[in-house]
Amino acid sequence: MEEVAMEKSVSKSDATNNRLELPMESLSNFPIPNGQNHFEFVAMDMVDRPWEFKVSIRNEGKYKKPWMSGQWGSYAREKRLKQGDRVKLIVQVEGNVVRSYRITAERNLTMGIWIPVEDFAS
């Protein structure tokens, strides 16, 4: 079964930095092992290219807002992401086990019509 693990509108800093701030409610979709502060995974994009990502949380304090790093900066640059684009991580789950991740990025063409960013590359 496919589920949306995370969906987010890209902020200016997400598009230009080497990390993507994730919504807190998405944290449960990334199985960070007990005693660790990160989870590494590979997500395939719309053209079946693998990207290595890492979801991390802070080691100390109550504020555990997650972020994604790894190849995020390269992904954002290659896809020419900009503020207002939408990024989704989709997870394929079999039973209670995550099997694979897919990442998509879309741009709002007009009036709520979202187009994959790959369609803008030329």
Rank of each mutant, 00 (worst) to 15 (best):
3 E>D: 04
2 E>V: 13
108 N>E: 15
43 A>C: 04
9 S>P: 00
87 V>S: 05
31 P>C: 05
104 T>I: 09
113 I>W: 00
39 F>G: 05
59 N>D: 14
60 E>P: 00
56 S>H: 01
52 E>H: 14
115 I>E: 08
84 G>L: 08
110 T>V: 06
75 Y>W: 06
57 I>H: 00
113 I>K: 04
32 I>F: 12
48 D>C: 05
119 D>L: 09
34 N>T: 03
50 P>A: 02
71 Q>R: 07
36 Q>N: 00
120 F>S: 08
28 S>E: 15
8 K>T: 15
114 W>C: 09
25 E>S: 13
16 T>P: 02
49 R>T: 13
84 G>P: 02
20 L>K: 05
117 V>N: 09
109 L>N: 12
9 S>D: 01
68 M>R: 08
69 S>I: 01
49 R>A: 13
119 D>Y: 07
16 T>R: 13
83 Q>C: 13
111 M>L: 10
52 E>V: 13
1 M>D: 11
77 R>H: 12
75 Y>L: 02
43 A>H: 01
25 E>H: 15
89 L>M: 09
73 G>F: 04
26 S>D: 12
81 L>I: 08
12 K>P: 00
12 K>E: 14
29 N>V: 00
4 V>P: 12
2 E>W: 14
78 E>M: 12
59 N>M: 03
104 T>F: 11
109 L>C: 04
15 A>C: 03
97 V>C: 08
63 Y>G: 07
29 N>W: 08
72 W>G: 03
42 V>E: 12
40 E>N: 06
18 N>D: 13
66 P>T: 04
84 G>A: 07
64 K>L: 11
68 M>G: 05
23 P>H: 05
31 P>K: 06
83 Q>A: 14
109 L>Q: 11
21 E>D: 15
63 Y>M: 06
83 Q>G: 06
72 W>V: 04
22 L>A: 14
62 K>Y: 11
12 K>L: 14
49 R>F: 08
39 F>V: 06
76 A>K: 05
120 F>Y: 15
3 E>Q: 10
48 D>T: 08
95 G>H: 11
3 E>N: 09
53 F>V: 02
55 V>D: 05
21 E>M: 14
54 K>Y: 01
89 L>S: 05
12 K>H: 11
64 K>P: 09
99 R>Y: 04
37 N>K: 14
73 G>Q: 09
105 A>P: 02
88 K>C: 12
83 Q>M: 14
11 S>F: 07
29 N>S: 13
101 Y>M: 07
14 D>E: 12
72 W>I: 02
103 I>Q: 04
28 S>G: 13
95 G>V: 06
25 E>Q: 11
108 N>G: 01
12 K>Q: 10
103 I>T: 03
72 W>M: 02
104 T>H: 06
111 M>R: 15
47 V>H: 06
61 G>H: 03
67 W>P: 08
61 G>F: 04
3 E>M: 10
99 R>Q: 13
114 W>M: 15
100 S>N: 09
45 D>N: 07
56 S>I: 05
54 K>T: 15
51 W>Y: 05
54 K>C: 12
34 N>F: 02
80 R>K: 15
68 M>F: 06
53 F>G: 00
2 E>R: 12
13 S>Y: 06
39 F>I: 07
118 E>W: 09
114 W>L: 15
111 M>A: 14
74 S>L: 10
64 K>A: 10
29 N>A: 01
5 A>L: 10
57 I>D: 01
